[in-house]
Amino acid sequence: MEFQDRIAALASKVSNQSASIGTEEATKNAFVMPFIASILGYDVFDPLEVVPEYTADVGIKKGEKIDYAIMRDAEVQILIECKASTGVPKIEHASQLFRYFATTNARIAALTNGVVWQFYTDLDAPNRMDAKPFLVLDLLDIDETLIPEVQKLSKESFDLESIINAAEELKYVGALKREIAGQFREPSDEWIKFFAQRVYEGSYTARVREQFTALVTKASRQFLTESVNDRLKVALGAGVSVAPTDASPSVISSIAPAQDDIDRDTEIETTLEELEGYQIVKAIACGETKPHRITHRDAKSYFAVLLDDNNRKPIARLHFNSRQKYLGLLDELKSETRHPLQDLDDIYAHADAIREAVLRYR
């Protein structure tokens, strides 16, 4: 499974189970250990790789421990401190991380509640953990631009020099993006005044501030909506004009099997065309839901695109195992209609039906 797919699978699990996780220990077992194992690629049961309840030899208050230390070549590389998933991870709760960071060789520290992962290093002062993270990964709202940076922390791709070199830019770009997002959600007085004074020629009075609070909020949301719509129009416009030729076989309808065969199929070979088709369906479906919720599973008979990695929430099926390729779309009764494809761009012609499939499960 590709790195991005592993993150999507864990994100789906977090989305489905976070409401039922109430303690720190449950958070570790359900979310943190799977992240260390499946995302970072370390063996959580090998003490040469992952040490739970890690205690340094010197310089630490007696009896104080870090939840996990990830080792490479017998040296601590990453320290991880956990909090319950019901709370928001705050740097005020990470006093152990600060102390251990100064007394070990670790250059990377992580504070997490299993849902949000905050990664720290020592950009501001050598061997002293920064007060602000350089990378924040929210599994319920994944910023896909961060996935390559997270992959650098994994066992197979660990590159400390590259991580540190990119950390400063990541730190400030990430902080700026979060600040901008916050201003779009709930604009501050400074943000409102900044824009009001550029379009309003009168004095900036309390009445004007009250008026422009609503106007700036509305304009910000409309701008975001229009930007997303413009990108979708560009993406969909490239493919809508492509239609099957008259020689295409007729549309085939069938009833979807009552028992999905995805789980029991073996000896499956996923092709590049199937993955390309999946990316097209995912791009369309993302107009109605977050990208990490769109997943796939391959089977002998077809390649399934699912919502939340759930067999009961099929968005589309790619029948690419014969010379004539089909896009399978299912209605409310799970009755499948196969549409012939001359090439992958033909999928865009069914964008409305794909989006409708996603909306049915919401």
Rank of each mutant, 00 (worst) to 15 (best):
H296E: 02
C82V: 12
V240P: 00
Q222H: 06
E161I: 08
D46M: 02
T104W: 04
R107G: 01
I66L: 09
D124S: 14
N321K: 13
D246L: 11
A235I: 12
E25D: 09
P126C: 14
I280C: 05
K155L: 07
A353F: 05
D352T: 13
D345C: 11
E169M: 04
A206Q: 14
S301I: 05
D230P: 00
K65S: 08
Y100H: 12
D246M: 07
C286R: 03
Y68V: 02
S253P: 12
E144H: 13
M71A: 09
A110V: 14
L329Y: 12
L111S: 04
L176F: 07
K300R: 14
T205I: 12
A19P: 00
L329C: 08
A196I: 03
L306Q: 10
Y54H: 07
F184C: 01
L111C: 05
S203C: 03
E156G: 02
F303M: 00
R338A: 04
Q197I: 11
A349P: 10
A175K: 12
V216S: 13
H292T: 06
S301A: 15
V242R: 06
E288F: 02
R99P: 01
L139E: 01
D43C: 09
R323W: 05
A109W: 04
V58L: 11
L79W: 00
